[in-house]
Structures are given as structure tokens and as C-alpha cells.
Design a protein around this nucleic acid. Structure first.
Lengths: 341, 341
DNA sequence: TCTGGTTTGACGTACGTAAGTCATAATCTG
DNA sequence: CAGATTATGACTTACGTACGTCAAACCAGA
């Protein structure tokens, strides 16, 4: 009826509480045969460790650090807000946040080097793709700190996991939508990126071009703009392109700086049918643009899920618990005007 | 540094542990002035009850019951599977599942009446819209059982909350997608429903027709088929319609029975361009159909989120804790071939 | 058979809260 | 102001696990 406890396991296996404890938290000093017997008993009884009691008894707090890029990037600020608001929501875990300059690999590497392994058990970092960052990250692991990348990955580095969406898939999804929305009107497609220095932007572009080339070959993709996720730069660049190219049918904005896109479009409202627009990340501005019809779709990653996946992954890593290999995978959400939350 | 405990609160408020406990679990026997003082101290210290310790000390289990419709409906079976698999995932909560005939209000009402309030603290029910169900539900509340509706709502009944997606929005989203996918080809749109007896289907239809009429007026909506979420009935009905109507440009399947849609379509592959298809609920079959290109989009509600929202909502209700008014709202997910999880 | 190490058991305390008992202090009633 | 009532305090046990100490039992090698 009621769930079995370690006492029941001990009795069933014919050993003492201490031994069960040793097996459970794999401490030294248990003969292999005994270990098997205890494990067997746990399986037979269907024992599951009571996490509440375990956390209560274990006095320690897991100290996690989130490193996020600075700037007016709404998505990142959303993550930051979420972390601040829910910092008390995780039991037995304390969370710190540090903000570093965006797209600046050297600054990021310096920050990683400065992490104190005596005061930090795990780090989640929005990575900039660069050798110095890779090196700093490897060093951090050497010093015994758990590391996951967040939002933008750094494959073939020593990070233990990635938490975020599959950015190639995201790009493919954007192309799939934008291609269909533009069907019947062939013309030019503009890609607005932040910087190809961050992996997520490069991957989104890759996926987007794959699908658009293969399935909508009558659309011509222009070289991507790099707006550094800054609304003013994005506005200026996009405005220039729209002026030069009269037959833009679609725009894919795969980074931040979405306000710049909206403003550039507003400046070209007159005359020709407006281009179809797909952007990333639901923010108050992109929501507004969806509602007033200037954007067609928003590809989104849920900051709440992102944070909670990162926290629980880091908790497992820090505590040495087994980790589901694709625990960090966040679903790609698609928003139209009609399914806004 | 460390989180304040009830001991700290007691000291700060100048009262005993017992009094803090009385305030915290609002028991009788505390003067109003004292209550204020304790609440004040809790606020000042930023006290938050340690849920782990509280659950550990409270020996009781919350006993929840989920009532789901029978049948081959993949989505419902998915919910059932999810409940079975994760029944141990919620601490201090035991979950039972009961299956009742689909679209059968009398059977559902009988089941609700048979719920034993002595053995059940809360019920989540996929409601069929009918007066007898409303009455049975009200009676259940009278007997002190917490009740939420799941997936399909029963507004203006005595259920305390609804857990699920906004089905009008879901229908609007489907129309928004299907309308754009069909652009350029005007013709007839087929709606395949399960039964207008369940609220969710009626609402989806409503939202769908709203948007399609307003924004894609050159499409003509045929009267909805009622397939009772049965793949064979759906196949037969849809096959008949496709035979009679040569110019079907789009199909919206808003219930279950998706396999029937796929089979009917397969029988009409030859000749004319295939209709664009939007269906509900990601299942192995709808996933396959997306991948092979016979479906264009799937509107989805995540069973995992649905279950966990229902469980935590019921837990709060049963324990008399405050409830976020839109805690039961689940996001509407949109899947294309390219963003399948 | 003795030695020295390894494995195991017995036991206690702690975590933060719930919930109970009982005595005493404060307050109200008439 | 006595007596009844209510509010509060002091104290205890319990929840299931972690973790520490110490002694006893076991085992391998000399």
C-alpha cells in the first residue's frame, strides 16, 4: 500500500540500514555480492528513494551560476527575469546570474576563468563559439564544475550537455512556413542574423537554407545581414536592403533585434504587398507585430522550460545522478496570431 | 544566508512554534492580532514553507482519480499511459484511472455518482457536455471532492478549473494555417469532428469557422462529418465526401480518428493536387503522415503538461492552497514536418 | 593461529514541518 | 470577581533519508 522505505529494503535484503545507505549513495565498503543482493531487493520491492526526505537530510545546497549575454536582447532579459523570480522555486539550490558582453568571446572566457570552484557547483552558459571559450570551459570542468551550454551550443567542447532547441530544426521550420506563406510570389528572401559567431544563429541559417533551396527553389536567398542583435543596426541594414531590392517577398529574422525589423517594415508599408515575415522569440514586440499583422509567425523557445531544464540537469550532474541523454532538448514552438498564449 | 524556518518566524514574532503552525495551516485558536503579527514576521523574513519537509511530515496521500473516455483515441490512450508510467512521479499523491464509454453522458454521470468521497480527494474528468453530467458533477462537489475538467471543459458547471488548451484558439490556429496553405486554390473545406456533444470539438469548429469565413472567404466550408473518433467511420465518411466533391482543397480533422483520414486520403491519391490537411494531436500515425507529406500540420496539446497541470492543480485544491487562476491553461503547439520532437 | 585490512551492523543525530497532548495564561461573560 | 472560554506555550513524536562514529564480524595472507 504505502511506498517501501530503506527499512523495508534492508529487511528484505537481510542487511542493515547502513549497508542499504552505502549502496544507495554508492559509498565504499560493500562487497559486490551484497550490492547485488540489495539492488535486487530494491527492484523487487519497487523501492524509490523519497526525494523530499533525501534533500531534507542532505544539508547541502547546490550552487549554480548562469552566464548570460548583456544587451537589449529581450529573450535573454526574459531568461534573467525568470531566474530572478523563480530563484526560490528550487529547493536546496541557490542560483546566481552573471551578465557578460554579447558576442565577446574573450570577455566570456575571462568570466569562465574567474568562476570559483569552491563557491560554484555548476554553470550554465550561453556560449560564443571560439577556441578561447572552449579552453576556458575545459579548464572549468577540470576544476570539478559541472557545465552545460544554454540556448547556443558548443559541440565538441567539454560541456556535459546542451539545453535548448535544435536550431537547425528551427531554421527548417521557419523555411517551411515562410516558403508556404510566400507561395505564388517568387522573389527575394532576406535573412537577418545577429552574428555568425554564435552557433545558434549559424545553425538556424543552415536549416533555413536547406529547406528553402530544396522545396521552394523559386525564392532567391540574399546574403544574410548581421545586425548584432541590435535594433538600430538591424533597422538601418534592413531598410537599406528593402530600398535596394524592390521584390523582397520574405524576411527571416533568426536572432534578436526584432524591433528593428518591425520599424524597417513600417517605413516601407506603402505600395507593394508586404513581405511575409517569420522571426524568433515571442516578446511583447513580436507579439504586437503578430497581432497587427506585420509578422506572420514567431518561432519560439520557452524560457521557463529552458531554465527549469537547465536547473534540473545541473542538479543531476552535480549530485552524480544519472541523466537522460536528451533531457536538455526543448521543443520548438510556433506561434501565429491565433495561438498566442 | 540560509532560508528562514518556522523557528525563526516564531522568534521574530515573539510567539511559539505552535502558534506559527496554527497560522500556517490556518487552524482555529489564534487571535486576529496575533495572526497579523505572525504574517508580518513571515513577510519580513521572506519565509517560505519548505514543501519537502511539510510533505514529509504530513503523512497523508492525496488520492486523485482521472476519468477518461474509452476507445482507440490515441490521445486519450496517451494520457492513460502517461498516468500509469508516472504514477510514482508525484510525491505523496496516489493516482487512479477509470475508463468510461466515450460520448456517453449517462455512463459518465453514473461513474461520477459512484465516486467514493471517502476514498477520493480530487477528480479530473474529460467531460461530455450534458445536464446529467453537470448534475453529477455538482453533487460530487457537494460531497467535498475537488473537481477539474480535463481536455474538454464544462463551463458554468461546478467544476473548479479547466485544464487543457483553449479550443477556440486551436480552431482559429488551424484555420489560419489551412487558409494560407490553400491560398490560390479556392474550393471546399471538410471538417472532420468526433461529436458535437463534447465541448472541445464544438469549440474548435467555432474558432475554425470564424477565421476561415473572415479571412479566407473564397473557401467554402462543408457541413462537418461526425466520425465519433472512430477510424473506420471517419474513413468511410470522408471517402464518401471526397468521392462526391471533386474540389476539396483542405481538410481539418479536429478530433481523433486520424488514421481514418490518412487512409481515406491514400485512396484518392491519384490525379488532382492533394488537399492540404491539418489535424489534431501528434500520434505515431499523424507523425508518419507529416513525414510522408500527406498531412501539412498538426495542432497538438502536450499530454505530459496536461497531466502535470491537472495533478498540481488538484493538489492545490485538495490542500486548500491558493491557485493561480490560469494555471490550467496549456499552450497550443503547432507541428510541421520540420519541428517534430 | 595471528595480523591487519575490509565489510557490516548498531546506533544516534539532524533536516523542517505536522500534529498531537496538556498546562497555563489571557480574555470574556454575567 | 468567579467561572467559563479561548488563546498560547512547552513539549513530544513522527516522516524517510543522510551521514557520522564505533565496534564486531569476516576474510586473506603469513
Amino acid at each position: 500500500m504505502t511506498r517501501p522505505t530503506i527499512h523495508d529494503v534492508a529487511r528484505a535484503a537481510g542487511v542493515s540500514l547502513s549497508t542499504v545507505d552505502r549502496v544507495l549513495n554508492d559509498r565504499v565498503g560493500v562487497r559486490h555480492a551484497t550490492q547485488i543482493r540489495v539492488a535486487q531487493a530494491m527492484r523487487e520491492l519497487g523501492f524509490e528513494r523519497n526525494a523530499a526526505a533525501a534533500n531534507l537530510a542532505r544539508r547541502r545546497q547546490d550552487r549554480l551560476l548562469f552566464i548570460l549575454p548583456a544587451g537589449s536582447n529581450s529573450f535573454m532579459r526574459g531568461l534573467e527575469r525568470e531566474l530572478a523570480q523563480r530563484s526560490e522555486a528550487w529547493e536546496f539550490t541557490s542560483i546566481a546570474v552573471q551578465v557578460v558582453p554579447a558576442f565577446d568571446d574573450v570577455a566570456l572566457a575571462r568570466t569562465l576563468q574567474a568562476v570559483d570552484p569552491g563557491a560554484t557547483d555548476g554553470v550554465a552558459v550561453v556560449a560564443t563559439d571560439s577556441p578561447v571559450v572552449r579552453a576556458a570551459l575545459a579548464e572549468l570542468r577540470e576544476r570539478g564544475v559541472a557545465v552545460v551550454t544554454l540556448v547556443s551550443d558548443l559541440p565538441s567542447s567539454r560541456r556535459q550537455h546542451f539545453v535548448g532547441i535544435d536550431n537547425v530544426q528551427a531554421g527548417r521550420t521557419a523555411a517551411s512556413l515562410l516558403g508556404r506563406f510566400c507561395r505564388g510570389r517568387s522573389g527575394k528572401i532576406v535573412i537577418v542574423a545577429g552574428s555568425m559567431l554564435v552557433r545558434d544563429h549559424a545553425e538556424r541559417r543552415l536549416g533555413f537554407e536547406q529547406v528553402l533551396r530544396a522545396e521552394f527553389p523559386d525564392q532567391q536567398i540574399l546574403p544574410p545581414l548581421e545586425g548584432r542583435d541590435d535594433r538600430d543596426i538591424v533597422e538601418a541594414e534592413l531598410d537599406r536592403v528593402l530600398r535596394q531590392q524592390p521584390d523582397v517577398t520574405g524576411i527571416y529574422s533568426l536572432g534578436a533585434g526584432t524591433r528593428g525589423v518591425a520599424r524597417a517594415l513600417a517605413g516601407h508599408a506603402a505600395g507593394a504587398p508586404r513581405p511575409s515575415v517569420v522571426v524568433h522569440d515571442l516578446t511583447p514586440h513580436s507579439r504586437q507585430a503578430l497581432l497587427d499583422g506585420s509578422f506572420d509567425a514567431v518561432i519560439h523557445q520557452d524560457p521557463v522550460r529552458e531554465i527549469s531544464a537547465a536547473v534540473s540537469l545541473l542538479q543531476s550532474l552535480v549530485r552524480g545522478q544519472p541523466v537522460d541523454p536528451d533531457a536538455g532538448r526543448i521543443g520548438i514552438e510556433v506561434f501565429l496570431r491565433d495561438n498566442l498564449p
